[in-house]
Amino acid sequence: MSRTRAGWADPLLWSGGVLLLLIFGMPLLTPLFRELFPELDRPLYLQETFPALVAAHLGIVAASSAVAIVLGLGAGVLVTRAAGKDFRGLVETVVAMGQTFPPVAVLAVAVPLIGFGVWPALIALALYGLLPIVQSTIAGIESVPESVREAARGLGMNPLRVLWQVELPLALPVLIAGIRTSVIINIGTAAIASTVGAKTLGSPIIVGLSGFNTAYILQGALLVALLAIVTDLAFDRLQTRLQRGRATVPAAAPIARATTQTARSTP
């Protein structure tokens, strides 16, 4: 990993800047969209403001990711305990199955049960983001060398302390990688939630698709993509900090393996 570049060369800084400009300055681009799509009467999406859409989008992503993190971390920790070992195969299968369903299908199933709105979207996204987190929790905890775990027990730490002071801190880099994957997937997938009536950056895209308004699609898609890129860069920064801040040398090899594994198993 290269050193973080400072100042204007920092990709996080300028991609974040572009994102902010687009969020708040989209109306200023109206002449541009008019130029690009002369056949459209209204080339700028006006039903909601873009700041409101981004806020709603991030709200759904944050809520569903928080649920996914709590559930995923809990499940991952549980199946790596001696008592929960037997459930590991089951949990991994169920979570993997959860991800083989297209989110649209989950939404379609959820709507008749819960109705339109934010809730089916939250449920679908939370389920969808679970897999990378469960996998990275398991991989992270398993990357802790057995000798370290034995020493912790042998010195008189109780099981909770071994988990909290030794296993989780050492698993953290792998865990963050899993959360990163999960959140990025959710930022993209949240757009689909507009099909069931949740307000997200998918709204201009859906409206644009049904009304043949390519400008709307472009506006929504640009913001979703930039949001994902900026978030990804921010996570990258966090991981670099984490790695630089402390000693991860003995665990470096398993981390690399676990990360590629997580990356490979996500669509």
């Binding site: 060398p145 370290v148 034995e150 020493a151 042998g154 010195l155 801190p169 000693a247």
Partner: peptide, 15 residues
């Protein structure tokens, strides 16, 4: 905690 314990690969906490 009343018994010292040392092992082969030292088991030091890397963090």
């Amino acid at each position: 905690r009343r018994m010292g314990y040392a092992i082969q690969s030292n088991g030091l906490f890397p963090h």
